[in-house]
Design a protein around this nucleic acid. Sequence first.
DNA 1: GCTTGACTTAGACATTGTCCATTGTAGGAT
DNA 2: ATCCTACAATGGACAATGTCTAAGTCAAGC
Lengths: 139, 139
Amino acid sequence: MSDLLERLRGRGWRMTAQRRVVAEVLDGEHVHLTADEVHARAVTRLPEISRATVYNTLGELVTLGEVLEVSTDRRAKRYDPNAHRPHHHLVCAQCGAIRDVHPSGDPLSDLPASERFGFTISGVEMTYRGVCPNCAAAA
Amino acid sequence: MSDLLERLRGRGWRMTAQRRVVAEVLDGEHVHLTADEVHARAVTRLPEISRATVYNTLGELVTLGEVLEVSTDRRAKRYDPNAHRPHHHLVCAQCGAIRDVHPSGDPLSDLPASERFGFTISGVEMTYRGVCPNCAAAA
DNA sequence: GCTTGACTTAGACATTGTCCATTGTAGGAT
DNA sequence: ATCCTACAATGGACAATGTCTAAGTCAAGC
């Protein structure tokens, strides 16, 4: 678990209580939290941590490539600590639950040159949408 | 071009000046506008149209399946009038330009049952990211 | 041309995110 | 161990986007 902290320290990240708490929150829960959810959990461990710091720290972690930003809907961005294994997402249209998925096939090779419009393609995100078993049962 | 207006009228949509203007703005420009951009263009034709009405009308068009909502980033949702041909998007990471693309292959069949977690899958969105020729030249 | 219920309006409000000036502090230097 | 200083945290204002509501307006059917 402190892999993340070790890596960060090794990159010259100045370690503060706030950053440690944010990193631990992300590292501890392998779900996809919003910035405010991260803040809420961080506050239970370090009550005086500010919202701005959480936003800053999350932004730094994204820049460092340690977490991914996921925007599956119009609402808040979510933060995905599983940045080291490429994957896509499956989202429940009703409750918003998110699962990581690993489709077969290579979507990059599915985009012919004629459809690239001269862009230099760097990646692709896939978001599958559907209804999760819980919501289907409730309906 | 008034295909859209005809279809809407045929579905019992009450036709008002505001709705007509919003539909015309979307129908006229085959780019992906934000709600506020739609509002700005609508205002030039109908100065007293309100922001709330534009939001309402866009929401109704989405519900009716006449336009698609596209969230390619954390910023505003964009509205895609090309709802009748399935397609995906290619976004410039620098300037935010969006192109419609049509990858080959079927991403739905690329998700094995073992990766579906019991979800009933209804669709998939793909967002290719890269740098457009303009931004690449400017760099 | 009435009537009526759906539509529009303006602006307050909510949510999410960013900025900035001030204060605090981690970690190297002494 | 203590001091310095650059970097980080704070909190509160601000910005961008979107939603809601109460009151007024109007399209479409009679």
